[in-house]
Computed example of a mutant assay.
Amino acid sequence: METFETLVRAEFAPKNTFLNTASNGLLPARAVAALHEAVRLRAEGRPLTPLYADVEAARASFARLAGVSVDRVAAGASVAAHTGVIAASLPAGAEVLTAEDDFTSVLNPFHVRGDLKVRAVPLERLAESVRPGTALVAVSAAQSADGRLADLAALREAAREHGARTYVDCSQSAGWLPTDAAAHDYTATVGFKWLLGPHGAAFLVVPEDLGGLSPVLAGWVAGERPWESCYGPVTELARSARRFDISHSLFSYAGLRRSLELVEELGVDAVHAHDVRLADRFREGLASLGHEAVPAPGSAIVSVPGLGRRQAELSAAGIEVSDRAGHLRASFHLYNTDADVDRLLDVLGGRPLSAPE
């Protein structure tokens, strides 16, 4: 019987200490193999039918991970595009409540409308700031810059009390933090971070009634019968969330299908326990070095003020982290080990650097 460790070791063999999943995740071996096969299929002129099947398999796999029915999931390419669809649906003058300094993709489409009232408050005050007249609350489940987790339960209750809809970007949480997309009106997620897929694939979850959204980006793939919707206006949009699909990056979904299969095999609960344990180990080590991370209990992302300047030095030592607004951001995922954490702490503490495993 395969264990968590044996499954992971069979799929990943990083050549460095990679602690940067919050930027992009590593591809598992099965996804790499699927990408090679997809490229060969295209190069040899064979039918692309299997690649379209990959899109639907990936959609179904993500739906299971998100806890929703597959007909609520749209397949796209970016969170910004999904946010744009939601922004386009709001009436002029509608108030959108956001968290200060949240990731641009979940904010900017509301700002560029020009006729919406976009109000930003500190993340910790988001739920208490919902008020009568708030149409939508948009927030990342985990903040990209520092890993802080939104209190989604409190936000959901506040939104319900005032008749507001909720939009949650799960790009920095789906794959390591259990996701209940059914608890929100809309959620969006990219596939290239904690879900371990290639760039170019993203998902949007909408309500069963489709949430009053207009499919402003709809092309032929959004038709109820796509291959009969290639010419002229689409006469019948898909009756499911597929009406919000955009033309699929077929290679991306070929790889993502296999990556999502691995996440399902491992189980998000097991990944969560693994990732958070490593993050906590790093936090404890930081304290022993006299550093204090941004408070983000329960997060797999750790941000350390003032240490971002050391990112280049760490990269030269074979340790990949991020510099975010002067903070050093380390993010821990299923392929990381205690040795990875200790190696980073060794460099930060000025101790002799041991060779990576």
Rank of each mutant, 00 (worst) to 15 (best):
E5T: 03
A316D: 15
F192E: 07
G306A: 12
H82L: 01
A10R: 12
K15N: 13
I319H: 15
L204N: 03
S247V: 04
R310H: 15
D71S: 08
L256E: 03
G163E: 11
F62D: 03
Q172P: 04
G200M: 11
V70R: 15
E261H: 09
R125G: 07
G93T: 02
H184T: 01
P91I: 01
F110W: 06
L237F: 11
R242W: 11
F244I: 05
T83H: 11
R343P: 06
A38Q: 08
R243L: 06
T6I: 04
R148P: 02
E56F: 00
Y335R: 11
V118Q: 10
Q172G: 01
F62P: 00
A53C: 12
A296N: 09
S105G: 08
A164I: 03
Y186V: 02
L334C: 08
A135R: 15
V216K: 15
W194N: 07
P28M: 10
R40A: 01
S144C: 02
W227Q: 13
F203V: 02
P132A: 06
P297E: 15
I246R: 14
L41H: 00
R125I: 02
L348T: 01
R239H: 08
S354T: 00
G350D: 09
D340R: 08
K193M: 02
R125M: 08
L307R: 15
L177A: 05
E128T: 00
K15G: 11
A279S: 13
S144E: 09
A339W: 04
A164Y: 10
T179F: 14
D115C: 13
A296Y: 06
N108Y: 14
S23K: 10
L90W: 10
S315G: 06
L348I: 05
G76P: 09
N24M: 09
R42A: 00
R46S: 00
V168C: 08
A270M: 07
E124F: 01
V321D: 15
N16D: 13
R239Y: 02
G67M: 12
F332W: 13
E11Y: 08
H272W: 13
A159Y: 05
L126M: 10
E157T: 01
R277L: 04
R258I: 00
P109S: 04
D340S: 04
A29E: 13
L237V: 02
A159H: 05
E265T: 01
